[in-house]
Simulated scan of single mutants.
Amino acid sequence: MATPEQQVNEIDPTLELLARVPVFEALAPEDLARVAEVAVPRRFSPQQVIFREGDRSDTCYIVKEGHCRAVRHHADGRAITLAHFGVGDIFGELAMFDTDRRSATVEALDRVQALAILAGDMRRLMREHPDISAKLVVALGRRLREANERLSRQSFQTVQSRVAGVMARLVEQARNEGNDEPEVEIRITQADIAQLAGSSRESASRFLAVLERAGVLKQGRGRILVLDPAALGRYVY
């Protein structure tokens, strides 16, 4: 049996990760420890589906290592990428509050380690500790407002500005994962960039070519090397 000191050392990385999650950042240390106690490690292989659109919503996930994406599929076979997730990102968080069906499919892009929190465990914590529930509602409300503001801004932006904004967010995600190199490699396709920016692939491709000629980035198969991350800001307005 592990000693109390060993148990603390084992749970510290989980507490550190949970503290990075925007939904949990307002929780007190003792509340984070309660969440950590019910968090279960999960591993996923590249291209493995974590859950599908229409599945019962019963678990939320926090990325510990690797990357995932959320996609929606249409009846005609097309798929649209809605979001990319990296270390510290949470997805499926509405499962903490309701049992509606999943609104999108989430799949692993590479090897993913995650923390899974069952909805039943989280709801029990919220019943036993009302402060947790109140703080989570406030945090989710703030995330919703931020999403609405982002969508509102995008509706007035050009394709170029939206694509540059997507690239800037992906660079920020890489920085948050510990990549402090002057040049930042991002594994993503032109099609995913276009979908995240709400543009056609052709329009996104043309602007990425402009950025490449300007020396801001260099494109490869399924990846982009951002040579001058700071320059992206000049194209976002």
Rank of each mutant, 00 (worst) to 15 (best):
A70D: 07
L109A: 12
Q173V: 08
V163N: 04
I62R: 06
D89F: 02
V166T: 14
N148Y: 04
E93S: 04
I224E: 05
L82A: 10
M96Y: 06
M96Q: 02
A104I: 04
R43H: 15
G141F: 03
H84G: 07
F51R: 06
Q173R: 07
D76V: 08
S199W: 05
V112I: 06
Q47A: 12
V236A: 01
G66Q: 06
F207S: 02
A214I: 02
G88D: 04
L211H: 10
R42M: 07
R111N: 11
R111E: 13
H84R: 12
L232G: 05
R162G: 03
Q219C: 05
L170Y: 12
P182E: 09
R143Q: 05
P29V: 00
M96K: 02
G220K: 09
P29F: 00
T81I: 01
D131F: 00
A197E: 07
G88E: 06
T3V: 03
E128A: 14
I90P: 02
L18N: 14
R20K: 10
D110G: 13
I90N: 00
C68G: 01
L140E: 14
V49Y: 11
E128C: 01
K64A: 03
S45R: 15
L217R: 10
S155R: 08
P13L: 00
T99G: 05
A2S: 14
Q219E: 11
H84Q: 09
Q160N: 14
L115D: 14
M167R: 15
G178V: 07
L211C: 02
A19L: 00
A95P: 10
R221W: 10
V226R: 14
R124Y: 08
S155C: 00
V138A: 13
D12T: 13
E5D: 12
G198K: 04
A26E: 08
R72T: 13
A33K: 09
R101W: 12
V166C: 00
M167I: 06
R221M: 06
A231R: 14
R52Y: 05
R34M: 01
Y235N: 07
G86A: 01
Q113I: 04
I80C: 12
D55Y: 07
R223D: 13
Q160Y: 03
N176Y: 01
R223C: 12
V87H: 06
L125I: 07
